[in-house]
Nucleic acid binder design. Sequence first.
DNA 1: ATCACGCAATAGAGCGCTCTCCCGGCATGG
DNA 2: CCATGCCGGGAGAGCGCTCTATTGCGTGAT
Lengths: 346, 346
Amino acid sequence: MSRRAPTLEDVAREAGVSRATVSRVVNGIRNVDPQIQELVRRAIERTGYAPNRAARSLVTRRTETVALVVSGAGDTSDAGQNAFAARVFADPFFGRVVGGIVGFLRPRSLHPVLMFAESAEAREEVLTYLRQGRADGALVVSTHADDPLPALLADARLPAVLFARPSRPVPLSYVDLAHRDGAHLAAEHLLARGCRRLGTISGPLDVAASQERLAGFRDTLARHGHPYVPVAEGGFTLDSGITAMADLLDRHPETDGVFAANDLMAQGACQVLRERGRRVPEDVAVVGFDDSSIAVTCRPPLTTVRQPVEEMAARMARLLDEHIDGVRTDPTAVVFEPELVVRASA
Amino acid sequence: MSRRAPTLEDVAREAGVSRATVSRVVNGIRNVDPQIQELVRRAIERTGYAPNRAARSLVTRRTETVALVVSGAGDTSDAGQNAFAARVFADPFFGRVVGGIVGFLRPRSLHPVLMFAESAEAREEVLTYLRQGRADGALVVSTHADDPLPALLADARLPAVLFARPSRPVPLSYVDLAHRDGAHLAAEHLLARGCRRLGTISGPLDVAASQERLAGFRDTLARHGHPYVPVAEGGFTLDSGITAMADLLDRHPETDGVFAANDLMAQGACQVLRERGRRVPEDVAVVGFDDSSIAVTCRPPLTTVRQPVEEMAARMARLLDEHIDGVRTDPTAVVFEPELVVRASA
DNA sequence: ATCACGCAATAGAGCGCTCTCCCGGCATGG
DNA sequence: CCATGCCGGGAGAGCGCTCTATTGCGTGAT
């Protein structure tokens, strides 16, 4: 650094006014003579002034920063913190979440700090981070249902909003999807197309969303006279989708319709079906879930249940912002409705 | 908030020592009597003290935060800032970059703030962010070669490190891959397998890496007596890979080997080839680039040129850390060597 | 002309921390 | 026995900003 950065004081001297006046101009400008405003503005220009955020934060107790936490289950193997990150972003789902959040935060000059909380230690770090006032609140996306982080945040009375309802009730706001309704749409569509031997690849059953999707699918089929539904549990990854589909096919070779709990697994299912000589959708119809980019690039393009992830993520950010501002105090749940997007696979 | 957070002062009173002593214990502990240390530690425990980072930053002029900037080309259409984010993370490449960076930062208690700089306005925001001292430096991953951000950062003398060499020389450190060598490996492998009608799907030619990969491929083939190489330009996306492969096949139906500049496009190529009745690798061999997760999940699994992205990203973070600490002052380039990973596709 | 009033602008007190300077006490050496 | 040095600990000055209390000044009512 050549010389130290200009401060309010410097600008004030340059403009021939007091520090307080410059501060007013820099911020919400109330009650400042337009001429002086202009004077100050020019002085700022000339000095290249940029307000020191640490100093501001010290008095306002705001950082205009939120923690964006991707939270894993209990203690993951030490295999790697960075492996966790890579795995997380392998699902386009998270990219969409980030997109939705950034879309909301940015116009408001709020900034996300990326944190991963896949171990007890990492969780503690998140809490400390917030307690130190380095972020005003947290946006939490859990990959597992029994994630302890939400409860920790609530106990510490730190502002936080969750993506998806926590398995055990926690006094925090969250956004979610009507997963049952989504599964219902998928079931109705498969039945309407004439499928009679249906199976499903569920998500990991320790995740509430997976349970809901499975339950919704089963309920609808039961109502249509199909009390038994073959299930293969997957892990929301492509690999697990491949394994699950193979398993399903081994057990029920006559299957003519499959509902996969996300697009990634649906893609895996399509791959297996094709390899086993089944045409999609002629021999076996496949419906996915999410309507992620995969749904479009998959061969064939997937009929899927659309989850408005970006919108949900943006809403989550908005809820947090309201909690931080104190505009909203009580925990609030916002549930979005899914819709069916029909493409080629079913 | 029930009552205000405990401060150093509170802890000092509780422990019966001075503020300075507590500060010493909290930080690098030099010259403090072990007994008093223990005393202070207990007082911290009892009060639940967490040092206010804004106050600390104000005096240390450090935030222990770095900006992680994903930088686009000139002004992207307003189509969407969040669309940009989603698009960026659609390529598993960025997930790996994030993983590598976090892997380095985390043990050092450094934190990444995610920023997207796909427009002039957004770029200005990044500069302001750094000038305000909200981050100590920037890690920049550009998606286009003519990205103006690196030059802006260098001009402002802000600490920054780039992923990939900038197209115009800029006095900043960067990490990169020996792209030519990678393409050379791919070419040699295809030739060794007996392919004689080779084509390539290049990346966007305004990206230096794409040019290098193309040049390397061409050079090697030329040296083996193949002066002409059909090229179809892609955009590193799956879609563009599909289009490019179709184009290549239309122009040169006799093609028996393809080198795609990344795995995503290689996957697209495989899809097209299969749809057109060509077996991979029997009829047409395909080599990708990156060795991303796609290479493993693709059907068939891709033979590809491995880029040690996590390692490169970690190194980038380390370079930045050194620049911030002042340990390193001159811009440094670190170039990694690729290696061929042979799977089923070639 | 006097006084109350409103508004623009200033003065100055912190926010919570680090870090330099200083002081007191003990061991050491002449 | 006193001068010297060292080391653990305290006092206090800021870091750059916001914000309340206060001053100064022009205006309209009395």
